[in-house]
Amino acid sequence: MAYQTKLALLYVAIGASLWGIIGFFVKELSLAGFTSLQIVFLRAISAFLLFLLWIVIKDPALLKISLKDTWYFLGTGILSVSFFNWCYFTTIQTSSLAIAAILLYTAPAFVLVISSIVFKEKLTHQKLLALIATFIGCTLVSGLFSSKLELSITSLLIGLGAGFGYSLYSIFGKLASRKYETLTISIYTFFFAMLALFPISGITSANTLVFNSSVLLNIVGLGLFPTVFAYWFYTQGLKQMDASKAAIISTIEPVVATLMGLILYKEAVSFVQIIGILFVLGAVLMIQERNEKDIQTSIVQNRH
Rank of each mutant, 00 (worst) to 15 (best):
L29N: 04
F25S: 00
I57W: 14
G33S: 07
S46A: 12
L29R: 01
G20Y: 02
L53I: 15
L53T: 11
I45V: 10
V40T: 11
A16E: 10
A16S: 13
I39P: 09
I55N: 12
F25L: 05
I45K: 01
S30E: 03
A61P: 03
L62Q: 15
E28P: 02
L52T: 15
D59C: 09
S46G: 06
A61N: 13
P60F: 11
F34P: 00
Q38T: 09
W54F: 15
I39S: 07
I57N: 08
A44K: 03
L37Y: 06
L18A: 06
Q38D: 09
K27T: 04
S17N: 09
F24L: 15
L53E: 11
F41C: 06
F24P: 05
G20N: 10
F25E: 02
I45E: 00
V26R: 00
S46V: 03
P60S: 13
L42D: 04
A32Q: 11
V40H: 00
F48S: 01
W19L: 11
G15Y: 12
A47Q: 04
I55P: 08
W19I: 03
P60C: 07
V40A: 03
V56Q: 14
G23M: 05
L42R: 04
S36E: 06
S36Y: 04
R43Y: 04
I21M: 11
L52Y: 15
G15D: 12
I55G: 08
A32F: 04
L37D: 03
L49G: 13
A16R: 09
I21P: 03
L37I: 09
A47T: 14
L62T: 10
L53C: 15
G15H: 12
K58A: 05
E28H: 11
W54N: 06
I39K: 02
W54V: 06
Q38A: 05
I57M: 08
